[in-house]
């Protein structure tokens, strides 16, 4: 994936966490050899279950963790290398993050104005009145009112807090947003508000979004392309429609078969597919790698599996 059609390129990214020393050392490969690219102004969805490394991937890209290996290019510039003030500034100017927990992600001791305006202050803006004006504009943009600026986070509902989190991220006008499960902690009725808001902002500001979530319906609705992660590996990348119609990796199939749909007729006939890696793959002789099985459709598979998948596609067509 070396072509420059991507604004963000993640190549062989590894993030290993180790604890203990010597013989007792324990290494967890939270992210292992993950490769994908995100095009400008597109939404790339990253799905997977808890512990699959999707959140770690996002946090490593924005350098909340120092990557163990691999490279991350943003507009061609490596942002996974050694941290220095210049790189920090480049990173914070271009990429912002939205967090999962609407309660945890806002400082309880700061007012909304201080929270949203902090990014501006860090960038050297001193004029209180101007900051105030920009904060109020931003509040209106996310559907809140001026009076909310002087309030504390605990007075807001989950959806409102998440909108405040979005306001904080976009007030510095980043090119890309990493949204880490922005709706999964919200009530159903407000999830749609936040998704619509993100969609509007994306169009208005030409944002590129890396959307991390576990809910495949939401990811499919929101994303242009989707990557499926399982235990630190990216196992399948495809267009949303393709992935849903033609899932190739057995884990993707299992995931799709488990999503409950609000339809009592289909739900009562649901057939669930189990994914058992030891049964579904035989990697004793061959090493799996990321392969483009058909245009725009990548699967993590071994050569013999690749042949099988190609047959499947031919049969479907």
């Amino acid at each position: 994936m070396a072509d420059s059609q991507y604004i963000l390129e993640v190549n062989n990214l590894c993030q290993h966490f180790s604890s203990g020393r010597g013989k007792k050392q324990l290494t967890v490969k939270a992210v292992d050899d993950v490769t994908f690219g995100v095009r400008p102004a597109e939404t790339f969805g990253l799905v997977g279950e808890s512990g699959c490394g999707k959140t770690t991937t996002g946090r490593t890209i924005i350098r909340l963790y120092n990557p163990t290996g691999g490279e991350v290019l943003f507009n061609g510039r490596d942002i996974a290398g050694k941290m220095n003030p210049d790189l920090r500034k480049y990173l914070t100017d271009n990429i912002a993050m939205i967090f999962q927990d609407p309660i945890e992600s806002l400082n309880p001791k700061m007012t909304i104005e201080e929270i949203i305006g902090e990014g501006l202050k860090v960038r050297g803006m001193k004029d209180q009145a101007e900051i105030r004006k920009m904060v109020v504009d931003m509040l209106r943009k996310v559907g809140l009112v001026e009076e909310h600026a002087t309030r504390y986070p605990h007075e807001f509902s989950g959806g409102q807090r998440q909108r405040i989190g979005i306001a904080r991220a976009i007030i510095v006008k980043p090119k890309m947003i990493i949204a880490d499960e922005p709706v999964s902690a919200l009530d159903v009725s407000v999830q749609a508000q936040v998704i619509n808001l993100l969609n509007d902002l994306k169009e208005e500001m030409g944002l590129t979004i890396l959307f991390i979530a576990h809910n495949l319906s939401v990811v499919k609705y929101f994303s242009d392309r989707i990557g499926v992660m399982y235990f630190g590996h990216l196992v399948e990348v495809a267009n949303g429609e393709d992935l849903y119609k033609n899932p190739l990796h057995p884990y993707t199939k299992a995931l799709l078969s488990a999503i409950p749909e609000p339809n009592p007729i289909t739900e009562r006939q649901r057939v669930r597919i189990d994914y058992v890696p030891a049964r579904d793959h035989d990697y004793s002789n061959e090493q799996p790698s990321m392969v483009e099985v058909e245009p725009e459709h990548f699967v993590y598979c071994s050569p013999s599996e690749l042949a099988k998948y190609r047959e499947q596609i031919a049969a479907n067509a």
């Binding site: 500034k89 967090f99 990014g119």
Partner: peptide
């Protein structure tokens, strides 16, 4: 905490 992480991603 996420809000500390959020501040870090803003370059605080």
């Amino acid at each position: 905490r996420e809000y500390v992480l959020a501040a870090r991603t803003l370059g605080v």
